[in-house]
Design a protein around this nucleic acid. Structure first.
Lengths: 117, 117, 117, 117
DNA sequence: GTGGTCTAGACCACA
DNA sequence: GTGGTCTAGACCACA
């Protein structure tokens, strides 16, 4: 069972499933070309609603992590650029936080220093 | 008009109001002891419902930014520790992102380097 | 200035005034027969609304701490039983808390022990 | 019907609901992991408004008694530390009362003795 | 079905 | 006037 749902987590279940697979794909645990578990089997495995799994898969497809072959299933995208793209996303995300910190008078330099420790 | 609601923003209105004031207080635009706009006047100004403003103010009070004097209004808390507390929150937030980045093979060092540029 | 209003205090202002005088009377700082400050002068002194002071005085009268002489003012009641009465009130108050504690499985004995330390 | 609203009670309805469940959870009547009644069903049962129940549940969540799973419902938190935390709160509450009693000349020792009877 | 947010409007305590 | 609570009812995201 590669994915685990944390009911204490405030994020919706579909979000947890999607980000769980995102990590597995980006870290290489699931390899390009590999078939994803079927929507129904995963729903059973996670004791959740098929609609929820479907929503997670749609999001993964939209974000370029998987692709659908009608009648066959979902497959992991071979996309070496995914990690690079994610890296840029992370940088943007942190930059935004740092900018907000500067607006309230916290120096970016100082924050970055605290992060290195 | 110090606060502006962005209807494109996915965050709820009360959240936008609360975080807007949080910034204004932390940056010193609104000073300690100053009176907040009344629930009703702000609701009119933002074309929103008094209950929504009320919810924002309750959250600000719970988080130590303002306090209520019954029958008089809401006032900005004098709390020099608020900025330090916020700083810690920001550091924790970024640390969490960096940890997740490491799980997918992105080196923390490299990310921090990119942020300095 | 015997009474001080704490605006950070969540209790309403009239309540703070009343309980402030209650303490002063019970501890003997203000003696039986002494005249209370006039409603208006106290309102000025505390920078508050005369209605608020009036409400505090009404409550003090209702609870037997002061009495009103029309055209003359308010006077502290000579009532040696006030302290005894207050003591009973305090005991009842703590008993109620202890009972509620027992309902959730906290032994009264144990709590009282913690209090002695 | 585990919860009952007392309209004579000066506490707001949402507060009565929240503290009612607090007791039920702390005493173990409602067990960890159990699902709370839905916001709507409880509102009907208590003949009150869903918003009022919602407010009570938000407070219970903020205080660590329950957690929300989006689209599923609210569940009782498994937190063995809740009773210990409540115990500390009770002790602080009584200590404060005892201190106030001392200010008006009532000996703490004597009060504690009266409570043992 | 389940919770979360919001509106429109009322009523109350307090200053 | 100021905040706090509540009702009735709507709409949305999520499962």
């Amino acid at each position: 069972m590669l994915i685990r749902i944390d009911y204490q987590d405030s994020r919706p279940i579909y979000e947890q499933i999607a980000s769980g697979f995102e990590k597995l794909i980006l870290s290489g645990v699931i390899e390009a070309g590999e078939q994803m578990p079927s929507v129904r089997s995963l729903a059973v495995e996670l004791s959740t609603n098929p609609n929820t799994v479907q929503k997670a898969y749609s999001q993964l497809e939209r974000d370029g992590f998987i692709y659908t072959v009608k009648g066959k299933g979902n497959f992991v995208q071979k996309n070496i650029e995914l990690v690079e793209k994610k890296k840029q996303e992370i940088i943007v995300k942190i930059r935004k936080i740092l900018e907000e910190a500067e607006e309230i008078g916290l120096s970016r330099k100082e924050l970055l220093k605290s992060l290195e420790e």
